[in-house]
Design a protein around this nucleic acid. Structure first.
Lengths: 108, 108
DNA sequence: TCCATGATTCGACTACTATCGAACTATTGG
DNA sequence: CCAATAGTTCGATAGTAGTCGAATCATGGA
């Protein structure tokens, strides 16, 4: 991942509603969640939610598939992983040992 | 770290100049870099850079200390680490095993 | 085909963000 | 104290982002 792409992903997550959408969708993997259901659960109008979903999709953080009348969205965890690797490279790039505590804590 | 704090850090990094500032400062740890030198290296006017530095500082991503006439800025890697842990929790929260490849690659 | 449902797009409005010239503040050497 | 240097703050401007009512598009059942 490269700086300009990274800023798009960071920008997509830098908004409280969109961040909550992504977290919600991660929790609902691997089934995904329909657009309307996302809007309902986060109490946001459908059209507003639609623009947020488009922003997240453009950043590569969501995928979607039509399922009859619904459009089901999925969190694309691979992009989050790439973003984190990009950030981690910043962190480790200067000081290798600074990352050790991170890796340790990441063992969930 | 909590959602609202995370969005502030994400927003601070979601701008190409500020992202480059942070990366530059990580590379210059532990000495840090003076505001003017940062502006010069990234070819940005001093006042514009000053507002970006303020944004990053407000998000807890930078620290600073006056050193005679200069103000020296440092990357606060601890905040980046917290941010990454916040994002990782999203990732692992739903699917524990999704994080394994991340941790593996993070061994720099 | 017609209607109901689920979702997106349009249009308008408000609010925020980035930028930069100019003015201001702080520190130090002469 | 004065001038020079290093940074920040102010003010104006242009562009971008978030919100939501209304209109539109797509799908499937009667």
């Amino acid at each position: 991942m490269e700086s300009l792409i990274a800023t798009e992903a960071l920008g997509a997550l830098a908004q409280i509603t969109r961040l909550e959408v992504f977290r919600l969708l991660v929790r609902h993997e691997p089934n995904g969640l329909a657009a309307g259901e996302i809007a309902r659960q986060l109490d946001v109008p459908a059209n507003t939610m639609s623009t947020h979903l488009a922003t997240l999709s453009r950043a590569g953080l969501l995928t979607s598939e039509r399922h009859s009348r619904s459009i089901v969205y999925h969190a694309n965890v691979a992009t989050l992983r790439e973003l984190m690797l990009f950030l981690a490279r910043d962190c480790c790039g200067g000081n290798e040992e600074l990352c050790a505590p991170l890796v340790a804590q990441l063992s969930c």
